[in-house]
Each structure stands twice: as C-alpha cells, then as structure tokens.
Design a protein around this nucleic acid. Structure first.
Lengths: 209, 209
DNA sequence: TACAGAAACGGGGTGCAGTCCGCTTAACCC
DNA sequence: GGGTTAAGCGGACTGCACCCCGTTTCTGTA
C-alpha cells in the first residue's frame, strides 16, 4: 500500500481552465506589448484586460519578468527550430565553425528583432540558467570544433556572452538604434572574426595552413 | 549683457551640506550592504538610518540601482588606479596582449569579489554606458595589439562581454558559488585562451612564431 | 551683516510588484 | 450523478521605489 508512490506515478493532468487562461494571458500580453511597449505593461493592467484576477497572473508567471520570459520563449522556440532543421550552414550539415559563424549572425538578427522582449525578460535577481538553448547550441558546436577547449563549458559561456551581451547589456535600451540592420552587420562581422580565430587554434591539431 | 553666459561660466559650487550628506549616505549604505546584503537594503531604511529624508536619497542617487552603482564605482576607481599605476603586466610596460590577459584575470577576481554590488548596480532599464572604464581599457589594449580589428570598437565590446557577462548574467546570483577562487581560475584560463587567440591572428602582420 | 536666489531637504502621496488565504471548480473515482 | 481532493482563482493587503512640492538652508553679492 503505497498511495504516495501511486499518486506520484500519475500526477494528475493540467487543468483545462488553467491551460486556457495561460494561453489567453499570453495572447493579451503580446497584444499589450505591441501596443504599449513592454515597459508599460503592468500586472494589474494585464489581469484586468484579460478579465482575470491578479493572483492568477502571478500564479502562472511568478514575476513580471516571467511574462516577458514566456513570450520570449515562444520566439526562442521558433528560432531554435529554424536552427535545428534549416538548411546549412545554419542547420546541420556544414562544418562546425561555419555553423557557429552562421548561428551568431542569425542569433544577432533574432535578438535585435526581439531586443525589447529579451531585455524585459532579464530578471536581475535570477541569473540566466545554464539550460539556455543558445548556450546549449554553442556548446555543442564548440565540442565539435575544438573538443579540448570546449570541455569545461566555460568557453561556450564566454562566447555566448560575447554574442548576446552587447545587445542585452551594453547597447541603447530605447529603440533609438540608429540602424538595426547596420548594427547586426557590424556585430556579425566581428563575431565571425572572434569565432573563427578562437576555434582555429584549438582545432584538431596539426592542420597546417 | 549676457548673464546667462556668465552664470554658465561658473555654475556655482557644490553645496557643502549636499556633499556631506552624499558622503554620509554612501557610508551608511556601505554599512547596510555589509550587514544585510544589497538586496535587503531599502531606500526608506537607508534614509532613516542616515537620519535624512527619503527625497534626499533619491536626489543624490536617482534610483535604487544608483546607490549600488555609486558604491561599486568607488571600488571601480580603486581598481582602475591599480591597473593604471601598478607593475606590469597589469600596469603599463608589458606587451599589449600580456596586459590584456593580466587585466582579464584581475578583473575577474575583482568582479567576483564585488559580485553582489556589481549585480545590484545593474539597471535593467538603462544599459551600461560606453564610457565604462573596463570597456575603455580593453579598447585601448586592443588598439595596440591589433589596431585594424579594434578600429570599430565592437570587438572590445564583445570581449568585455565575454569577460564580465558570465559573472554579471550567467552564474549563480546567490553567493552559493561553490568556490570563488576556483571559478576565477577557470574563467581566467579560458579568458587567456580567448584573448591570445583573438589577438594573435590580427597582430602586426607577419611576426612569424 | 543682510538679502536674494538657487539648490537641497523632507516626508506625504502614488502606483505597481508580489503575497496570502478563503473560496471555487475541474478532474478523478466510485 | 455524487463525493473527494488538489489545483486554480480572485482580490484585498503589504512594502517599496519613485514623484512632488512646500519649506529650509546655503552661498555669492552688496
């Protein structure tokens, strides 16, 4: 007689109303972000416009940043899908370094496009978890390109920071970015230099130039 | 008759009481951070403990993050002074790449040591300005090590992000860092690889090894 | 020393993030 | 269908960042 084990075995399905409310909240949130900008979306406002209680909003998303994180995550999933299934060099099939370069360029474009959400989803109280898909993907490519250096995972961390940091931390928050296209281009070119040089020296050893 | 121009020319000195209060607030804030941790310091608490009005605190520091920024800035100044005047390879006198490596290691140690302040001073609403001393210093060293690549300033931005991002964004916020010394060491070693490889290929051209 | 103007100060007021807890309801079992 | 239970829901409540503006204090000038 182990009712605990039994109940653990099938942990009761997600309630339909909860799922519905969550989806609805995301829809309304998306709408409000488009309309007011992320920084003008409040939890009260969202709850009211969704016709739900404030407690419900917090139950689903924990914190204010949680909402933007959830919204960003949807985009992130689409992006990662493109990366995993698209044609090379972004998708599988090209040499690791080429993929790394292509990934960086694509990621920059993606980030600039969703910069507001990406920033709003940062929670200064909690760090970005190491399960970040971006980190995971870079780690995978590095493991292929220069296994020895990639071993500890630190290099991947640093490269992802180099890739995403400028947009997340260091560049203008208000979208007064003079020319996003130009920005992506410049950052992309620099990323290519960075990625190629870092991996070149650590590659399968004696591939003389 | 140009009283405006005249008054602009000498914009009236800082009031003595203001300077005194500011210094006092910083002292009390430092004390409270040490005692309660940055995340438990409130503006009201600070004002009360300092025996000043809340308005005064905000007048001096603008935002909550502003206080921690000011505190961090003091440490930052000390650190930059060490960097500018210390013995090589951290200080002047060594080749640029060696200085870059040494700077990274020193910076990591510094950041880990003041991680709580550094994080608390991040203001998600406003980006880190490009006058960041760290960015400035890396840019200077890069300009010496590989002038062509450094030209745009983007590479410096990316390297600083690679250096500081892991601590600012990606690693555990609560000081459950298993072993800070070990962390600094690992990040430092990885930084060295990064810095040396990136600069090696772009160095003053044909310096054959 | 007296005065005028500007800067600094104080603390009540506002809006929002996040918590709490009693009530409701969907899901499972019979 | 009826009962049980855990999850979900709502909205009043709390605490804090930040604003506002009438009052006070300093400083440069006469």
């Amino acid at each position: 007689m182990e009712p605990v084990a039994l109940s653990l075995a099938r942990p009761r399905e997600v309630r339909a109303d909860a799922a519905r409310n969550r989806a609805h909240l995301l829809d309304v949130a998306r709408e409000m972000v488009a309309e007011l900008g992320a920084c003008n979306v409040t939890m009260d406002g969202l709850a009211e416009r969704a016709g739900l209680g404030k407690g419900t909003v917090f139950r689903h998303f924990r914190t204010r940043a949680g909402i933007f994180h959830a919204l960003f995550d949807e985009e992130e999933k689409r992006f990662q899908h493109r990366v995993m299934t698209g044609p090379p060099p972004l998708g599988p099939g090209a040499p690791a370094v080429e993929r790394l370069v292509a990934y960086g360029r694509a990621r920059l474009e993606f980030l600039v496009q969703h910069a507001a959400l990406a920033r709003a989803s940062l929670d200064t109280a909690q760090p970005i978890p190491s399960e970040s898909p971006s980190l995971f993907h870079v780690q995978m490519l590095l493991a292929e390109a220069c296994p020895v250096d990639a071993r500890s995972g630190i290099l991947a961390l640093q490269l992802v920071a180099a890739l995403e940091g400028p947009i997340l931390l260091y560049l203008q928050a208000p979208d007064d970015t003079p020319d996003p296209t130009r920005l992506v281009h410049t950052l992309g070119a620099s990323w290519q230099v960075l990625a190629e040089r870092v991996t070149a020296a650590g590659a399968a050893p004696p591939a003389r130039r």
